[in-house]
Amino acid sequence: MDTVIAYLPSILRGTWITIAVALCSILLAVLLGLLGAWGKLAVSKVANIFADAYTTLIRGVPDLVLMLLLFYGGQQLLNDLGDYTGLWGYIEINHFTAGVFTIGFIYGAYMTETFRGAYLAIPSGQIEAGVACGMSPGLVFGRIIWPQLVRYALPSFGNNWLVLLKTTALVSVLGLHELVWESFTAGRSTRQLFSFFFVTLLIYLVLTAISDVGLRWLDRKYSVGVRRA
């Protein structure tokens, strides 16, 4: 245990980076999810096709494969494109950005389904009633759709968040110095890999437990006025 305590600063730094990656990518995922849900529900056929392709492609491929593909392939593609057009020189994407973008991009597809399902759960009569009262589309969204969208999306959002949090461990494979990477390095140099991975396991457990409490609180907040049997 003493060795783990000696390495505590780097472990905590890694934990902080893990949390930062998770928070940034969930933000991106929510934005992409809203955009994707809009694309799936839009009247435009083109938007439908794009959104459908996005969700089926992403959800069919394992996250680590996509992560490696986007990290190595995406960088190559960006540089080839820069070479070809001459608009920009050599770019090196840093690990943090790459991790956030790939995780956000992947979970955006899952969030698309979350928000689509939540939108469909809102009775269309309410939206019609809003329009009939003379509300502008923005007002209908802000007052009628959004509060209920959050309520219906919350259970599935919570699931996605917990899965996303665990997925951040994979970013260590790209080489980002987050929790798993830090404990791997520390464990290897002290030859105490078990102790360090055990601590990592506990930290993840604490993070999911805190998320559980937070999600339950959000659920209570947004189900005000819902009667439960």
């Binding site: 951040t168 396991l201 993840y204 457990l205």
Partner: peptide
């Protein structure tokens, strides 16, 4: 169930594959 569902599969695998040799 709580421990296995609350932690990443990658860390579980590392714990078994790299970790157990510590003892």
């Amino acid at each position: 169930v709580y421990v296995f569902r609350g932690t990443p599969l990658l860390v579980q695998l590392y714990l078994v594959y790299y970790g157990l040799g510590q003892f």
